[in-house]
Amino acid sequence: MITIKNLHASIDGKEILKGLNLEVPAGQVHAIMGPNGAGKSTLASVLAGREDYEVTEGSVDFDGADLLELSTEDRAREGMFLAFQYPVEIPGVSNVNFLRTALNEIREYRGQEAISAKDFMAMVREKSAIVELDPKLASRAVNEGFSGGEKKRNEIFQMAMLEPKLAILDETDSGLDIDALRIVANGVNKLRSEKNATIVITHYQRLLDYIIPDVVHVLYDGRIVKSGPKELALELEEKGYDWIKAEQEAK
């Protein structure tokens, strides 16, 4: 689904990603873990096309397309979805209006007709049930006055609505209570298929009890320095990142 080769990216002249390689095939879930400031959110932002970042080297193939050549909105329309670590509030714009606009723009890009109001509302009902999102939240302004957990849940609701090929979840588990965590994870699992892929960025192996990853990667100092099966997450939780640091320094 996505193949990242030797990706270098910087912001305000400071290099954050320093030759990152990563491949996530369709049908798989990959987890990315790593210490604070390692560059996890940066990777997500660069892939999503945030303009503040400058890509200085490397290539990204997204399901056959040259991702770095695409505009931010076209990446989304091609099926890239980012669940934000800090979802943004848009006062006065209802969630449903926001999503219908997004959905129709994506459909137009793909040469599909705009969705009817009736079909759209049916879809809202179906998808909000997947993440057990209070239907009232769907008609409220985008994230405005939502609790931290509600915002995260709303991200997964949006993901369900937009049905992306690749979803990147940036610390979607942080700030969720145990029940919400289970619900969000269930939502993600229900949306998993052979045709899409998911990158889960997290600090806690607990999430990975619910969303079982095919591979766990460690992102350290702008690079993927270690990859392994889901047990790697347990090991990191037990031992922390010092041994990774030591290993890297030894190199």
Partner: peptide, 24 residues
């Protein structure tokens, strides 16, 4: 941030501004 959020959902910049302003 608001504009990026909209763009990331597939909404064009012009439409994003229109949404945000109309919301405001």
């Amino acid at each position: 941030d608001q504009i990026f959020y909209c763009l990331q959902r597939g909404i064009s910049e012009e439409k994003a501004i229109s949404l945000i302003v109309n919301g405001y």
